[in-house]
Design a protein around this nucleic acid. Sequence first.
DNA 1: GCACGCTATCGAACCGGTTCGATACTGGGC
DNA 2: GCCCAGTATCGAACCGGTTCGATAGCGTGC
Lengths: 330, 330
Amino acid sequence: MSTIRDIARSANVSVSTASLALNGDARVREATRRRVLEAAELLDYHPMRAARSLSSGRTWSIHLLDPSLGANMTSGFFTHYLRGLHDGARDGGYTLTLTVPQDEAEARSVLKRLMAERWSDGVVLMNPSEHDGLLQDVVEARFPHVLLGRSPVAGVSTVDNDNVAVARDATEHLLAPGRRAPLLINGPAYRTFTQDREQGFREACSTAGVRPRVAYVDAPPDAVREVIDAHLGAGLALDAIVTVADPQAVVAMRTLHERGRRVPQDVAIIGMNNDDLTQYTNPRLSSVELNAFALGRNAIELLLAGMDGATGGASQRLVPHELVIRESSA
Amino acid sequence: MSTIRDIARSANVSVSTASLALNGDARVREATRRRVLEAAELLDYHPMRAARSLSSGRTWSIHLLDPSLGANMTSGFFTHYLRGLHDGARDGGYTLTLTVPQDEAEARSVLKRLMAERWSDGVVLMNPSEHDGLLQDVVEARFPHVLLGRSPVAGVSTVDNDNVAVARDATEHLLAPGRRAPLLINGPAYRTFTQDREQGFREACSTAGVRPRVAYVDAPPDAVREVIDAHLGAGLALDAIVTVADPQAVVAMRTLHERGRRVPQDVAIIGMNNDDLTQYTNPRLSSVELNAFALGRNAIELLLAGMDGATGGASQRLVPHELVIRESSA
DNA sequence: GCACGCTATCGAACCGGTTCGATACTGGGC
DNA sequence: GCCCAGTATCGAACCGGTTCGATAGCGTGC
């Protein structure tokens, strides 16, 4: 392992000149720069990250704090936006690091250490639940950040879908042919995205003049089965189902099938995320493509822009979604 | 941000004593240690990672080099072993970093920089293809490593399923009731795991005295459809299908259904990985559980053990698999 | 009462880079 | 011939920790 002092010696310059040359400073003469670069090449020189970080104050890494990997059910979504984050980070010269906290307390303590010990130059927060103090911490510490999701507090940069519109569009699509008895199968209640989706659902129902029904499901898939059984068992009408994730929609389809209801003739269904599995069901599942890759990519862009100090304040970005209509709601 | 010098001053000790106290060295007197820890608590002291790394030579991070995230089709598998890696790293006090190279050249250059610039203390390699030089590089550099998969070269620590047995068990299961015309739908040809699975498939066929047929598929799912169409179109018998991934099995089921073959009565099918989607098909898909989480967890354990220098040589570990029989092969 | 060993602590060096301020050298203007 | 501005380079300080070798202070044994 050769150090910059080896390079300096070999190129017959001082350490400081070697450093300047290697970093492309305009002050060093062309001939000198070449000598230094040749020496570096010859000695297979690679600057040690830790040393560079210590003196420059930059780690060249971005940290992702994401509890969702623990909650599964969303692996398709996760891998897609992870890839968006990764590609964006790579293109900006950054490395991605990752923590999956098990609960809110761990998330908060990891975030605190991460910022204080300077593990990275910025952090991506995935959909923290509303009432933990993560967001306040990051804002108060003035640590570069971006939130995937909608922020309940001010001063936070965010990238998100327009979840109100996502649910409204999906619901309108199902109600358009004149269906009158829609059900929303929603996720955990304390997240902004489920609140927004419920709002969108209610808006569409209101416009169509039909009664909205909403069920909350924490731990699919069996809970979905129970919801539908209860609904039908109570003799309630049901001709349209919106779920906030595709696997839930698949379970809903199976349950309806077992109860003798046809999809889409009796009940139309649409999910969200446009997972690969939408291709594999029978009938194929309609869904809302949320462009998770773009979500990740935009998050990194916003974060890097904020780290350059170019933008003073927090900014928000919305990633477009699009309905993908398949047989389950045709 | 307070540094160790602030702590030392506040606790009325030298910097070196402060460092010793903070790291629990036995030499410092109990009363002194308490003074130092109280000062650290009071000033909310957190040692900067880069500084610690530079002086101690340890980064306290593990890097995952994994091209498979780019190739998708395996998101369930990926998230599970990623979680195994993450949990193992966390428990050992390490942070996980991640790179997704786009091709072999990038994989190799990233690996080289990673080792030379000391991004991490060790690296996890996911199933690199056989003929790139990744493994030689890592062995020659004597860099702590572990391979997820089987190594074609010596001196590499690995964690893997027994892929020969995986395919053999799956095939035997299908052939047991007397089926005579099995087909293996395999993945990319140049990976050790596809070779092993083909071998296991052939062994089971040989034992049963039936003729093995093997098709290679790079880019599912449409390729699977073509394979089956071609097979049936040629008038070949077909009563059992083994695929190396679950999504391929699902496509196979759909294609058979469209061609008027019943699953499992006419053709029995089993996939691998035991993805969530096996629950969502009709009939439900049999599969082989590969215990991806355990795979990741074991990989980290092996890596950390190797980093302690406890073990001199490379070691191998096999993670057990298990057949999960559902309706598609009942 | 003195030599000795042990314990707790300290100052300084070190890890490998970046960056600041000083300096030697160069060429141009008058 | 002298002064000055600008250029290329250098030594030293610095980033914030860890660790090595030295030392002061102490109690013990004889």
